[in-house]
Design a protein around this nucleic acid. Structure first.
Length: 488
DNA sequence: AAAAAAC
């Protein structure tokens, strides 16, 4: 089997790899690095957690080993869709370039220009950036991209989702066509295909087959919660979540809890904190320095619960998360896969628990359709609904305004707008019913629907010999995570 | 319908 020492990497890079404790490259590293070192373009079709980042940083550092940076003319450029991902690439670069004299700058939004300007003026070998901030620097005339020898586009499919493709095309156009290009995407949507045809030249196409021993590392569970009035769903979910967290006890070392909306992230983080749980929010409306600090605390094990929007769904490298919760089922089924992929990494076991209310049924259907299997149904915790816990009950009197707890959480937000025609009918009966149903014990284990699950297996195992391979610098990835998604 | 990313 290939070892890092068999690859023609710079000895200084090999030394740093060894010091980081790795000996064996992951499949994508073993396949991409030789082509990259020959100077070929690389098209990598792979998910996060496969060791993708090092598959470009290692040859990049090797290739830039000779030569020096000139002022305002970076020698290489790495583009990532989110600030956190860009920061992660920068860390990876630092790890493996530590015995070289190569320099880097991280250009992301949300932070001051001053320091970034200084680094660019001095000249950097590697520029790592999100597209918006990079173009901002360029337009201010601070930056020339004509010296770029190597360009990397990471997570291109996500760039597509986020509307960055025009920016990416423009940036490609600012770099010399003689550059070497590494391009990574989890899927090959037609638009992505078009870009690669335009900007890559005879690339080595590397597609990572899923690994044979898989998905046992993530235990998935769906908790179905009872129907309620619209504004009651979130509250019931919060209660259920707390009950589950409590029931997991010490097994829950740390967890990421995903919500679909930023406001929900804030409300949930506050609510959990109020209930004496160690929780903090992360989403795109929060100050960048806070985002960075929160993530650092979480990585360092100083924070147990990270409440997140989908800013954290993909790509974030948080090595050991014991649990992932979907407080809301994601509306894009691929996001389900990305979210739960934050646990069960590096061969460790992980648990992914999703909460569902009846209104989310359509999302569940889409997820099960994508996974080609049913999510195992778990038992809902017993909830003392009807007894006010720490949060005051929703208005019992006729006026169906909003729950006190919510209005409190929203105090900081701009003037609360009136609820657009709240659910009319069954309001009256609701309170009584929930009071009687003091205990919800929903054992809703359903017989699996017709055998659509098993029929389709292993068809995309491409016969690579990496089964059972020791996986260095990447993580163990369940097989269904590596399946290609169809873009609806 | 929402999230992310530029000021």
């Amino acid at each position: 089997m290939t070892q890092f020492s068999d690859l023609k990497l710079d000895p200084k890079v090999l030394k740093a790899i060894a010091e980081a404790g790795y000996t064996t490259p992951t499949p994508i590293q073993a396949q991409a690095i030789p082509h990259a070192l020959e100077g070929r373009d690389v098209l990598g079709i792979a998910q996060t957690g496969t060791g993708k980042t090092a598959s470009f940083t290692l040859p990049l550092i090797t290739r830039l080993g000779r030569g020096r940076a000139r002022a305002r003319m970076p020698r290489s450029l790495v583009l990532a869709p989110t600030r956190e991902l860009a920061a992660q690439v920068a860390e990876n670069f630092d790890t493996y370039a530590k015995h070289t004299r190569l320099t880097k700058a991280l250009l992301i939004g949300g932070v001051a220009f001053g320091e970034q300007d200084k680094l660019i003026d001095r000249g950097v070998d590697v520029l790592i950036a999100t597209p918006g901030r990079l173009l901002d620097h360029f337009e201010r005339g601070k930056l020339l991209l004509t010296g770029v020898e190597v360009m990397v586009v990471d997570e291109a499919d996500r760039m597509l989702d986020m509307g960055f493709i025009p920016d990416i095309e423009r940036i490609f156009g600012l770099t010399p066509f003689t550059r070497q290009t590494f391009f990574y995407s989890a899927t090959m949507a037609p638009e992505i295909e078009r870009i690669t045809n335009t900007f890559l030249s005879n690339p080595a196409r590397i597609e990572i087959a899923r690994q044979a021993t898989a998905s046992e590392t993530i235990t998935q569970e769906l908790i179905e919660l009872p129907a309620t009035r619209r504004d009651g769903a979130a509250k019931i979910k919060r209660e259920a979540l707390r009950a589950i967290i409590e029931a997991e006890g010490d097994k829950l070392e740390n967890a990421i809890i995903f919500c679909n909306r930023k406001v929900e992230v804030d409300i949930l983080a506050k609510s959990l904190t109020k209930h004496k749980l160690d929780a903090a929010p992360i989403h795109g409306d929060l100050d960048q320095s806070l985002r960075t600090r929160t993530l650092e605390r979480f990585r360092a094990g100083e924070l147990r619960l990270l409440i997140a929007s989908d800013v954290a769904a993909r790509g974030l490298d948080v090595p050991s998360v014991s649990h992932v919760f979907n407080f809301d089922l994601p509306s894009h089924p691929e996001d389900y896969v990305h979210r739960i992929g934050r646990t069960g990494r590096a061969g460790r076991s992980g648990k992914a628990v999703s909460l569902m209310v009846p209104a989310d049924k359509k999302y569940l259907d889409a997820i099960e359709q994508l996974l080609q299997r049913e999510l195992p149904r778990g038992t809902a915790p017993q909830l003392d609904i009807g007894k006010p816990v720490a949060e005051p009950e929703a208005a019992k009197d006729a006026a169906p305004r909003r729950a006190h707890s919510v209005s409190k959480a929203k105090a900081a937000a701009p003037a609360p707008t009136p609820e657009p025609a709240a659910a009319p009918a069954e309001v009256a009966s609701d309170t009584k019913e929930t009071q009687n149903a003091n205990l919800y014990n929903l054992d809703t284990a359903k017989a699996p629907r017709g055998g659509r699950g098993q029929s389709r297996q292993r068809q995309d195992n491409r016969g690579n010999d990496n089964r059972g391979a020791v996986v260095g610098m990447g993580d163990h990835v369940p097989d269904f995570l590596l399946r290609e998604f169809r873009i609806a």
